[in-house]
Write a protein that binds this DNA or RNA. Structure first.
Lengths: 162, 162
DNA sequence: TCTGAAAAAATAGCCGT
DNA sequence: ACGGCTATTTTTTCAGA
């Protein structure tokens, strides 16, 4: 994986497309080279299928951290939500009803990057306290949610209205 | 969304492909009808792009729950991990170093389905206690992890070895 | 709403660099 | 490894049922 590969993967994520033509426009890499590169990345297991699901371990973002965030502000969280999402590496962010206000999942390139992540959160004025949990191993991180259901269940549960 | 749509979406998830040809083999729906259907689903916002990212709200799996699982067994969790993943609706599952052993994210079709989920976990013999947290609103649930990084950061952090 | 057939695009392969 | 080119395969469009 060199710079070109990373630019390509980033373009796929940003544009949300696998179209060689569009990727060429974005990256200036010739269409046939894009092919060549993507085939190699697939071979290496970095990209998984024709939906371009990325293997986070292989791409170098294999460290996962869960962060609970408690705020000291009880009004509208509107602006604060934006600030949370601005923190680099945050892939999931939930506003919850439990003991903490927000729960965040972040994918990082190394465990030493956790410090920066926490600092970014603690720096926000609305944050009262954070509580981080290291992920030792990921049993599943499913990009395709429907895989985790039987067809029968989906038909039962999603078809009730019509 | 009728049965055909659901079968189609399920096939996309299972086969991890958007290829009309492959989807035809799986579902027996004619290739050009698959197109017609997918266009409608895209129009309706159920599918987001040509990578077939699904809108969970629109598809009817908009309820998210986080479950902490504490086990009473301190040996190998190997078989137990399988049991967790067998619970329907579990999309993320992490083995952690924190106060609890496992943290699970599940996407459900309604809040009344939470009961079944918890029961499924509590029924497992290794489970000592569970603690569920309802998600009030999802700020982000990113299928494309690289979107949450600047290109500069990716180049800095992922390129260090070569 | 659906589909077969035509048009367009993506992929594979060749080969000189 | 790269990338221009052509051949092949696959996807997308669309008129008509």
């Amino acid at each position: 994986m060199d710079e070109r590969d990373i630019r390509l993967l980033k373009a796929i994520s940003d544009l949300e497309t696998g179209s060689p033509e569009r990727l060429h426009e974005e990256t200036d890499i010739p269409v046939s080279t894009i092919h060549y590169r993507l085939n190699n990345l697939r071979e290496a297991g970095v990209i998984k299928n024709d939906l371009y699901d990325v293997d986070l371990e292989k791409v170098g973002l294999g460290v996962t951290v869960l962060v609970e965030i408690l705020t000291d502000y009880s009004g509208s969280h509107h602006d604060f939500k934006e600030k949370i999402l601005d923190v680099e590496g945050v892939t999931q962010a939930y506003f919850t009803m439990g003991e903490t206000d927000f729960i965040v999942v972040a994918h990082l390139s190394g465990s030493e990057k956790v410090e920066r992540l926490i600092t970014d959160f603690e720096t926000l004025e609305e944050v009262e306290r954070t509580n981080s949990t290291f992920v030792v191993s990921t049993l599943r991180d499913s990009a395709r949610v429907l895989q985790n259901y039987e067809l029968e269940t989906l038909l039962d549960e999603l078809l009730e209205d019509e």
